[in-house]
């Protein structure tokens, strides 16, 4: 291990993953999470084998019953012959410091099914962005041959939206009895939803939530081709999941036939390339020029009003250079 280069090690690991070795897959995902140069080497080997699986993001506020929905959805998808990989992302674990990741508790009955892979991911402070790390982890599982990838995220914050944004189809799970919950989660999350699930549909407030979502959707004029359906489930009793699976497949068909899948993936990759490049610019161009005593001195000049911020920035990246 010590004698071979990391490049070779990465290639070997991916080779093993491609043969279906779960241990290798587990390690590839860890390396992706740890970040660093290894990620690039791994992606070089992985990337040609990706792009086949469909990615479904499942998100919603805490207490909505997402893990149970995912557990039941795995059951339905397995009965339909799909090979399913799940990434349970919990961005709410403390940014620095540890985490207890417990989403897989509700999915443990699938733990010994060879056609199911379940992986938990915490926040950890991924500098490259949690969304990128989770997406790369999904790509590894795609390369391994899983036909369907589920990305579960807890909560409705910015990082969850970003994670959900890397999916082809986004399912938003809403619990009844949130009070003005639909209003509260409307910003951001309503726009990304391709399918709504009102879980705990046996709750007396469930129909109200359905009506609320319908009201919001009526005002949404941006999506003439696909109106997000609202699926009612009682995940704890296994009810409504077949319906959800039908809707997911319908959405997939819509994406493919309308060319939307192509457009979405293209847009996402564009964004990804730009993000990677931006980070590289920051690290390779900006950081060496700002981590200097000269920069500290210049900062003092700006603080003491001998120079203005634009003039200082000009010293770091001259306008002509930036333009050229």
């Amino acid at each position: 291990m010590v004698t071979e280069t990391t490049e070779e090690a990465a290639a070997r690991l991916v080779e093993s993953l491609l043969k279906g070795n779960r241990r290798a897959a587990g390690r590839v995902i860890s390396a992706i999470e740890d970040g660093g140069d290894a990620v690039e080497m791994l992606m070089r080997a992985l990337y040609p084998h990706t792009g086949r699986a469909s990615i479904v993001g499942i998100t919603g506020p805490p207490g909505a019953g997402k893990s149970t929905v995912v557990d039941e959805l795995i059951r339905v998808m397995r009965a339909d012959g799909r090979a399913v990989a799940v990434l349970a992302v919990d961005p709410n674990s403390p940014f620095s410091g540890g985490a207890v990741l417990g989403d897989r508790v509700r999915m443990m009955r699938h733990a010994t099914d060879p056609e199911v892979f379940i992986r938990s991911m915490g926040a950890r402070g991924h500098l490259g962005g949690l969304a990128l790390a989770s997406h790369n982890a999904l790509l590894a599982l795609d390369a391994m041959g899983f036909s369907d990838l589920l990305a579960e995220t807890v909560g409705v914050g910015q990082s969850e939206l970003e994670v959900a944004g890397t999916a082809d189809t986004t399912v938003v799970v809403v619990p009844p009895g949130l009070g003005d919950g639909v209003q509260a989660i409307k910003a951001g999350i309503m726009e990304i939803a391709d399918i709504f699930v009102v879980n705990k549909a046996d709750h007396p407030q469930a129909d109200r939530v359905v009506a609320d979502i319908r009201d919001v959707l009526r005002m949404d004029l941006k999506r003439p081709e696909w109106t997000p359906p609202i699926v009612k489930t009682v995940a704890t009793a296994g009810e409504g999941l077949e319906d959800l699976w039908i809707r997911i497949r319908q959405h997939r068909r819509y994406l493919e036939e309308s060319g939307e899948l192509e457009r979405r993936r293209r847009a996402r990759l564009e964004q990804e390339i730009v993000e990677i490049a931006e980070r590289r610019l920051r690290e390779q161009v900006l950081r060496p020029r700002t981590a200097t005593p000269e920069f500290r001195a210049m900062l003092t000049d700006v603080v003491e009003r001998r120079m203005n911020p634009y003039e200082a920035a000009e010293q770091i990246v001259p306008k002509t250079a930036a333009a050229g």
């Binding site: 779960r22 540890g98 985490a99 207890v100 897989r104 508790v105 733990a111 010994t112 379940i118 950890r124």
Partner: peptide
């Protein structure tokens, strides 16, 4: 980072979870 499996697990479930 602690991954909790919950109760009543078989050895097979535990090991598979550890590998994944």
């Amino acid at each position: 980072e602690v991954i909790y499996t919950g109760l009543h697990q078989t050895p097979e479930q535990v090991v598979r979870a550890a590998v994944d």
